[in-house]
Design a binder for these strands. Sequence first.
DNA 1: CTGAAAGCGCTTACAG
DNA 2: CTGAAAGCGCTTACAG
Lengths: 332, 332
Amino acid sequence: MGNETKRTTIYDIAVLAQASPSAVSAVLNGSWQKRRLSKSLAERVLRIAEQEGYAVNAQASLLRRERSHIIGMIVPKYDNRYFGHIAEQFEAMARDRNLFPVVTCTQRDPELEFEAAKELVSYQAECLISTGATDPDRISAFCKASGVQSINLDLPGTLAPSVISDNYSAARDLTHLIMDRCASDLGWTGPLRFVGGRREDHNTSARIAGFEAAHADRGIAIPEDHIMAQGYSAQTARLLLDDFTPDGPTGLFVNSTISLEGVVQWHAGLGEARTFVRYGCFDFDPFGSFLPGNVGMVEQDVGQMLKRAFELIGVKTGAKEATLVPCRLVKF
Amino acid sequence: MGNETKRTTIYDIAVLAQASPSAVSAVLNGSWQKRRLSKSLAERVLRIAEQEGYAVNAQASLLRRERSHIIGMIVPKYDNRYFGHIAEQFEAMARDRNLFPVVTCTQRDPELEFEAAKELVSYQAECLISTGATDPDRISAFCKASGVQSINLDLPGTLAPSVISDNYSAARDLTHLIMDRCASDLGWTGPLRFVGGRREDHNTSARIAGFEAAHADRGIAIPEDHIMAQGYSAQTARLLLDDFTPDGPTGLFVNSTISLEGVVQWHAGLGEARTFVRYGCFDFDPFGSFLPGNVGMVEQDVGQMLKRAFELIGVKTGAKEATLVPCRLVKF
DNA sequence: CTGAAAGCGCTTACAG
DNA sequence: CTGAAAGCGCTTACAG
């Protein structure tokens, strides 16, 4: 009935079932029918395995098999609707395809990202999806040297195919929505402020480009200090806005729900002036429609992104370009 | 420079470095100093390993080693602040302790939970933490038979030690808070409604007990139909409330942010009557303070729960009781 | 049809 | 000090 120090092996079961280890192995991995082992033997082995709490040693099994069917993913955070959803859907979709998903979360730490990638390769992952990685090319280079397929998600790289949101278009649309609402609600048509993210970051820079394009569409110039992309945290957003007390109507483009927390805190502290503020956020939150002043949010299409990523798995394509997946603009 | 079909092994490196496989192994796993191999050999091997994109085959390595240092966790969802946070913190804390975390998400599916648990045991996990499992005892029984330690988190079991939130006390406190605010804001002291969760679920039932205790503290009777615990989804909550249009002041105890989404939708549709509604939620959301009518939220102490769980790892305790971790009541 | 044997890629006790 | 050899627990081609 189990053993504290040593796990049951096929040899233990072979002795108990009076069969050969080969036969036990065949029964346990389901190939016994093909090998024409008797049904009574199979039942005996299965019963004993169950009694002994047998679990195949995946290490030994994988070492011997030619394919691992393991598919790895690194993701910056779980504790975030977007990335949490990606990780969760990834696991479900991998299982649907009879692949074994292993996800690990790297806290946006570049060293940990690389270490985690190496670990997944060590575990014989056949493909590695790097989600929102700060240095995806370093990972892709390593994967390539190890003969492991690599795919970038959310943030693009140059050494492997990438699947990312169409940040530019969605940011442009969101900017227009905010400007429309500033015009209709407040009768104001000035330049918006962009809050959150990092300019060096690919997605932020694509969103800033969309933000600028929308302004250009309307012939509105953006003062330099209106682009406030010095970091993601709620804290950062609040500090940036701390010395900004609007003296009239104002609009903000908020880059992520993390930054939105800071914006909303700032907004709540404005007093009467808060009725002259409109904002929108590039990121979705189910409670978003209840935030006063919030006119809309961009929801990235995680399902489509992963679907596309899975289509790339196992395909030997030379293409290193990024696939752009459209986002959904939710208006409040 | 890498190989698409076959990964580099220590034998490949041994040939290239003109050394024995044993020496290469020692260099690569860091035991070369202990074995007094020359520094020049070590450097040569390391350089070649890097060039070849070598990654140790964890399957082979673990098969040979006596301990895996793998610690597994199953969790119902990532796409949820509470569970996402648990998974994320778990990985970080495991790494801090030089353990290798493997987390897998089971979508609240009892079969998948058990399959995932078996997989983690197959991967030679030394300990398995079952988070919010629907049938933790089935998993614990299997682990026991395989000689793997098992710990329950968030939801208790009877076959392994459990670490859970003090749902009863926190629910009682939250109920008092809502009743206080109903009294002070609305001058109303009637019984509250309990919305969301499942009565059969341990945590829901502990929270209902706390909810009832708070009413008993004040000598308020709770009509039977006020306990609406028929499921977790936002949809369910909204349907339950659909035919309830308050004709006077009212208070709700909302069991989880998922249910809160439905409550908030219902609330928004009430029109003028909405000013006579107060509610609180057992679960935290950073935007919670902006939801009109929301008077407070309970934040579970994930850090403490995991700290306690890690203290149990490797400890051979006969104790199967649950450790209760206090929650934090956030008032708005 | 069925079992013995080889071998997956490592680690490490052991002999030299 | 260093390498050859055994063996971790499986799977499967192969011989009988």
